[in-house]
Structure formats: structure tokens, C-alpha cells
Write a protein that binds this DNA or RNA. Structure first.
Lengths: 211, 211
DNA sequence: CGTACTTTTGAATCGCATCAAATCTGGTGG
DNA sequence: CCACCAGATTTGATGCGATTCAAAAGTACG
């Protein structure tokens, strides 16, 4: 990859700049069409994938043929555990046209124990992921749309202020709700004065009003 | 080795044996009564906690005083990200009488970059946690009790066989369901022949029958 | 200016939560 | 060994909230 392409990435929240240049140079950009299988269950991991665009899923087919989704990702690393495994325990599938960065896994794994700052980056990345996933789990365990919204604002926002980086429809999916349910709940919360919505520069901002 | 054999190896229970003896010797066992606050929001992390028994929560109070739970744990490490942060962004509370292992965080953080095998252990632990949390998120996003149960069996069981290590009531909570809903769904699934339950040696075993 | 998408509202339905209460169970102490 | 207790398991009735299906209005973008 060229330096130009890399600096564009550095602006994004999940930063891959700390990855050793040596690895970044070996990474190749992969364009995958919707429906394509990136890697198969049982095969030995050859690459560590980083999703830049699109949507990737890790899935497994159950005994009776039903699809079981183990992970869904639109940005960031997928299947981090494949570093330490001899074989994938699920398929990696693109459900949309996607752009992936494929880091050859062997040098990746070999450099981690050697390069201290790289290891630090990797541990920090994983720990952050764990934290955000745990919060997401707690949120999804909440019963009502209102509770999930409030939880999201509290855990992802700051000082009762939350800037959405996505459409409300996409947010609904993240909250485990239908978009109708989210729209309805947001409008009733607004009516009650529990939150206020601002739309500035195509960004929706949610403000929580303390009672 | 076949993929099956590998996942059997990976399913090893969370073990703290690989932690350097030097750190384990410095760790102290902490008995905390239900309701006690282990660490406060804003304070500098002094220990890395490992839950051996009881239940610990990471929580934050929202602007209007509502409790927001960011993590709930009954076994394993809590707040792994505190390794790299100067201050907790939430309270750590025991909601039951609990037993914790407190590793002084400074030597913990200092040894990680030095000790390669320790770093490997830590990265593997985190990656495994990420994987299991992602599966849990996908599961909780499913709408019906039946789908969550099937997802659990597929992702946590092996070959359509799942041994529960907990009561069904506790399992219901993990699935984000009331125990009534779980009992009812299990019995109707049994009636339809979708699963079969065996109780041997106080362990409930769930068997999925392929259609 | 048309197209694809998001946002919004409506009505009917379904599944789970909730409250209640009756067993069943493992483990305890007498 | 038995009585007893706390907890898990089971079943019932009711209501709420989200899903689902449907359709209209708004919005971004080429």
C-alpha cells in the first residue's frame, strides 16, 4: 500500500498506524463481492483481516442447516483469535461488497512477541474491544427500547451528549431493535423531554436532559 | 489435527496458572461483602482483579441517577482495559459476597512487555474473551427465546451436544430471558423433538436432534 | 428531477415479562 | 433417618412492548 492510502486511514477512530510498517507493506487490499466466502471453516488462517468497508460475518451452519452468526463486523479486525488457532471454526463471509486489508498472519504472529510496542498496541486494541463488547452485551440484555437508548447514551456518550456517527436506522440495528421501534421511542422520549435531538451538518446529536 | 480436536483444546477453562509466579505471589485474596465498592470511578487502578466467586459489576450512575451496568462478571478478569488507563471510568461493585484475586497492577503492566509467554497468555485470553462476547452479542440480538437457545447450543456446544455448567435459571439470565420463558420454551422444544434433556450427576445435558 | 434510502406513522399480532402460586430438589441440622 | 428450608423448577393468567406488515413523506445525491 502507498503512504497516501495509509495516512487517510489514520484519521479514523480505530488506528492501524501503530502496526509495524513491515507488516503494513505486506498487507494487501482485498475487494470482496457480496456473498463471497473469504475463508472456510476448518482451513488454516492465512491472513488477519481488517474490515475497511462493507460487512463481514463469521458464521457457522448448524446441524439442521440454520445459519448461526458468531460475529458481524463493519469496521476493524475480525477473528482476532485466529492468531492462535490452527483452523477457523467458522466461515468468514462478506454479506456486502467489502474492502478488507489482509495481513499475512505468519509475520503478524511472529512479530507480536518481538515488537513490544506492537504487542502493546494489540493488547490495548483487544482490551478496548472487550470493554465495548461487554457494554454492548449489558445493553442488549435490557428489555425495553428506552432502557437500551439510555444505556447507549450513558456508556457511549459524554456528559449526557452523544453524537451519532451513523443513521438512526443503523443505530436501531446496533441496539437490537427494529428501526420503527427506535423512531417511536425516540419521539416519545423527546415529547416527554427526556432527550433532545439536534441535527447539524448531517449529524444527529442526542442530548439527555437531567430530571 | 482436525478442527474438532483443536477447538476441544481451546475450550480449556480460564486458567491463571500461566501468570508468572512472581505476580501470583504478590496477588492477595480479597473477600468482599455484597454491596461493597471495590474501586471508585475516577481513581487510579491499583489492582487487576480476577473474580473467583461471587458477582462483580462495573457500573456508572447516569445523570438522572439511574444505574448503568457496563459489565457483570462471575468468573475471570474484570476491567482488563484498566491496565492502560490512568483512571477508572466506572465503579467496581460486588453485588454478592465475592472472592477476588488482586494483582498489583504496576508489576503486572511492567512484566507484560518483558515476558513473552505472559504477553502471549494475555493476548490469547483477551482474544478468546472477544470471541465469546461477540457470539453473546449476536445471540442477544436474536428476537425469540428459541433462536437464542439454538444459537447457544450451536456456538457453545459441540456436535449438537451441550453440557450446562449452571442451573437453567442462571442460563436464562445469560440468555437475556426470564427463567419462565426459558423453561417454557425448553419444554415446547422438547415436546416437538427439537432437543432432548438429560440430567446426569446433577448436570443438565442438552441434545439437539437434527431435523 | 428521479431514484434509493431514511424517516415517520398506523394497525394488528405475537412473544415475552410479569405476577402468582404450586411442586420439586438438594442440602441442612436435629 | 427425617423434617425442614432455600432455591430451582413448573404451570397459569394477563398485559405490555416490540415486531411485523404497510404505506406515506422526507432527504441525499447523481
Amino acid at each position: 500500500m502507498t503512504p497516501d492510502q495509509w495516512s487517510a486511514l489514520e484519521a479514523v477512530h480505530l488506528d492501524i498506524a501503530p502496526i509495524p510498517a513491515q507488516l503494513r507493506e505486506q498487507a494487501s487490499e482485498l475487494h470482496v463481492a457480496a456473498g463471497m466466502i473469504v475463508a472456510n471453516l476448518g482451513s488454516r488462517p492465512k491472513f488477519m483481516y481488517f474490515i475497511r468497508a462493507g460487512e463481514i460475518r463469521l458464521r457457522r451452519l448448524s446441524i439442521n442447516g440454520a445459519e448461526v452468526v458468531l460475529q458481524r463486523g463493519t469496521y476493524g479486525f475480525v477473528a482476532e483469535a485466529s492468531l492462535a488457532t490452527a483452523a477457523y471454526h467458522c466461515d468468514i463471509v462478506a454479506v456486502e461488497d467489502s474492502v478488507l486489508l489482509a495481513f499475512p498472519i505468519k509475520p503478524f504472529a511472529e512479530l507480536l512477541p518481538t515488537d513490544t510496542s506492537f504487542a502493546n498496541y494489540w493488547m490495548t486494541t483487544l482490551a478496548r474491544e472487550v470493554r465495548s463488547l461487554r457494554a454492548q452485551c449489558e445493553r442488549l440484555a435490557l428489555r425495553t427500547a428506552r432502557e437500551r437508548i439510555q444505556h447507549y447514551i450513558e456508556s457511549e456518550g459524554r456528559d449526557g451528549r452523544l453524537e451519532l456517527r451513523q443513521t438512526r436506522k443503523a443505530w436501531a440495528a446496533e441496539l437490537g431493535l427494529t428501526h420503527e421501534a427506535l423512531y417511536r421511542t425516540l419521539s416519545s422520549m423527546t415529547a416527554e423531554g427526556a432527550v433532545r435531538l439536534e441535527t447539524s451538518a448531517n449529524r444527529v446529536v442526542l442530548l439527555v436532559k437531567p430530571l
